[in-house]
């Protein structure tokens, strides 16, 4: 069997005494759209941060296309503080910074939009193309890299066209309306030429029409760019609509996993979202 696009193995993230992600294992196969859902504060974004290198998990491993990209076991104070449920720690320690992980082919967007505030829409996307630069400091400063520069600009422009922002390219990124800022974040992530796209609440703040369009857009870019998509989302219609599979977590732990139809009827999921009926 071919390696999964992304595989998490017993990932645990603990801050002080709080276990934000507990023994999370999951796999995402090539070309899938997989959603990670759960109530607020369930640890979804923390899981994203563990995958993309923003945090180093306290324990557990992450594989990308069969390659071990993150691996850790409790160290220092965590040896005694560790409160996760999985106690069989990996022996290897592998730490990668976010930029290296992006270079491998994972790109992400942020829940609380993080655009480059002082720069235009076009520049925001252009920055993301630098990942593949071959020019060095000297050739870039002396403008000996015109060819490369031109291809970057063309690539950035085509990404803007892909998300339909070509007409706003010279506007300041922060002056765009909310929905367009989200799309710009996606364009920026796409410009790094990823294989796996991680979207953190891409539909937050969008109205039903926009959400609907976003769903179609995600399905569309998956086939157009050969992507695998992993997304966190609260809009259930969107999730049920486009996901191939869904993972549900609550208090950092996985409580359900399956195709949308299975999740919809899962009593644990309903409890997690609506709370336990006391009576």
């Amino acid at each position: 069997m071919a390696d999964a696009m992304l595989e998490l193995s017993h990932v645990t993230m603990q801050f002080g005494g709080v276990v934000a992600v507990d023994n999370l294992s999951m796999h995402i196969d090539q070309d899938e759209i997989v959603a990670l859902i759960g109530p607020n504060g369930a640890g979804k974004t923390t899981a994203f941060n563990c995958i993309t290198g923003v945090y180093t998990p306290t324990s557990g491993q992450v594989f990308y296309r069969g390659e071990l990209i993150v691996s850790n076991r409790p160290q220092g104070k965590m040896k005694t503080l560790y409160a996760g449920s999985h106690k069989d720690f990996p022996t290897q320690v592998v730490v990668n910074t976010p930029d290296r992980i992006t270079k491998m082919g994972l790109a992400r967007t942020f829940q609380n939009i993080r655009l480059f505030k002082t720069q235009t829409v076009f520049e925001n996307v252009l920055i993301a193309t630098h990942l593949h630069r071959t020019s060095n400091l000297f050739t870039a400063t002396m403008r000996l890299n015109r060819q490369e520069e031109r291809s970057f600009r063309e690539h950035a422009m085509s990404m803007l066209e892909a998300v339909g922002l070509q007409d706003e390219k010279d506007e300041l990124a922060v002056s765009l309306p909310y929905g367009k800022q989200r799309r710009l974040e996606i364009a920026r992530a796409l410009a790094t030429r990823p294989r796996l796209l991680l979207l953190d609440e891409p539909a937050a703040g969008m109205n039903p029409q926009e959400t609907d369009a976003l769903g179609r857009f995600i399905v569309d870019i998956r086939s157009r760019f050969g992507l695998t998509v992993f997304l966190i989302e609260h809009h259930m219609d969107l999730v049920m609509d486009i996901s191939d599979r869904i993972y549900v977590i609550d208090f950092g732990r996985q409580i359900a996993h399956g195709i949308p139809e299975q999740i919809q009827d899962n009593p644990d999921v309903i409890t997690a979202y609506l709370g336990v009926d006391e009576e």
Binding site: V54, D99, T102, R108, L115, F116, I127, H130
Partner: peptide, 18 residues
């Protein structure tokens, strides 16, 4: 441009492979 990206948002810059 990468420098300016770092100035504007370190976390986002790093996520863009800088």
């Amino acid at each position: 441009r990468s420098f300016k990206a770092i100035r504007d948002d370190e976390v986002a810059a790093e996520a863009m492979g800088i």
